[in-house]
Amino acid sequence: MKPSKRSRRYFLRHALTGAGAALLAGCDALSNSSWFPKVLGIGEHLSRVAQHLVTSRRSMAQEFTEADLSPHFRSNGTANPEDSEYQALAARGFQDWKLRVDGLVQAPAEFTLAELRAMPSRTQITRHDCVEGWSAIGKWTGVQLSHVLELVRLQPEARYVVFHCADPMWGEPEKYYESIDLEDALHPQTILAYELNDEILPIKNGAPLRVRIERQLGYKMAKYLMRIEAVESFATIRGGNGGYWEDRGYEWYAGI
């Protein structure tokens, strides 16, 4: 009995090690295949549908108090866009900067920072959740995107809003961009923020203007806004996935 038991154990141990290695190699092969990530993508659609079922269009993200503010609101991604055009604008305190709003709108327009600041504002203390796992609480002031979209009047075909940004990513010529649907675009907490913690929005956090989309993860909240474009579909824009990180495999729906 004993030798056979020992050899059985020997066999088991080696079989387990081998199976483990094969499992890991198999998982990596699946991740790199063309079809498996698409199957995994079912999860994103299920999450979007299920999360919309249990919330209303206007369900509000939690708002906090001054006491909850993070002492220092960290920067992530671009901290200072390496772009000569942007740097020239920054050097003059964004006096020459204009936000262009166009695409599927009745009245395309450009707004200066002063014009945006003159519009009705909303201030909210919210928690920023990064896809990496960290959170920080900041106080944001800006104009509701819905207000700006009312001024330019969306055409009925418009279904998404695309944010075009000034920051090139990691020295590539490609600049950051993002997109959201109209439910988020018209949500009361979706604001174009020009102030953080009662001060002018710092460059590291997206000056002169960034968007806040409080029910989604941080990468949706594009910084360094230059242009907002209303579209029917984002399939033909850049990588076709609706955002810089989306083109690199992150979910377009970033509600979880």
């Binding site: 999450s47 993200a61 939690q62 928690r127 029910r215 993860l217 509600g255 979880i256």
Partner: peptide
Amino acid sequence: WAMSPWLNSVWP
């Protein structure tokens, strides 16, 4: 679910 910013809005 508590880590989901969207589900946070179910009941702030």
